[in-house]
Amino acid sequence: MLIDTSTIGLVEVEEGTKVLPPNLIITSIDKVVNWSRLSSIWPVTFGLACCAIEMMAAGAAHYDFDRFGIIFRGSPRQSDCVIIAGTVTKKMAPVVRRVFDQIPEPRYVVAMGSCACSGGIFRTYNTVQGCDTFLPVDVFVPGCPPRPETLMEGMILLQEKMRKEQARWSMWR
C-alpha cells in the first residue's frame, strides 16, 4: 500500500525525522541505529591506574553515569567501548590490545588522562607514550586525573561522534 504523504499530516519533529500521528515515525536507519547505540554505551570495567578511581567516582551515586545509559560491564565481549583509564605500560600494552580486540564491532576507545593520551609525566623506559600508538582512539580526555565532569564531557563528545556516523551498521561498510 502506498501512502500519499502530501495529503496526510506528516510532522517533521527534527531534521530527517517525521511523525505521523498517532504513532508512525519515518526516519533513516542510520538515525535509529546511531541513536540506540549512543544511548547505551557499555564500557568495559577496566581500570589501569589513578584515573580508574575517578572513573569509579563517575559511576557512583554522586555523578551517576547511568543516566547516560553508560553501564560498566565485566566482560569485553559484552561491551561497546573501552576507557583506557590510566598509564599504559609496555608490559600491559599486549593485554590492553587483547581486551580491545575482544570487543565486537562497532567499538570505541576513550583515552582518559594525560598518561593514556601522551604518557604524561612518565617519560620512562616502561611507559607507552600515549595509547594511540597501538589503539585507534576516538576521544582524548586530558587531565591528571580528569574530573568526573571531564570524563562525562568526553563521553558526550563520543556520543556526538556516534550520532554523525553513516552506514556503520551495514554489511558493506
Binding site: 589501569l48 591506574a49 590510566g86 598509564t87 605500560t89 608490559k91 600491559m92 593485554v95 609525566i121 612518565f122 617519560r123 620512562t124 623506559y125 616502561n126 611507559t127
Partner: peptide, 22 residues
Amino acid sequence: GYLHRGIEKLGESLTYFQGLPL
C-alpha cells in the same frame, strides 16, 4: 608489574621539589 612506570628511576632525575608530584 603491569603498572611499573619507573618512578624510582624518574625520581633520581628530578630535584627533591619536583619529585613530590610523583
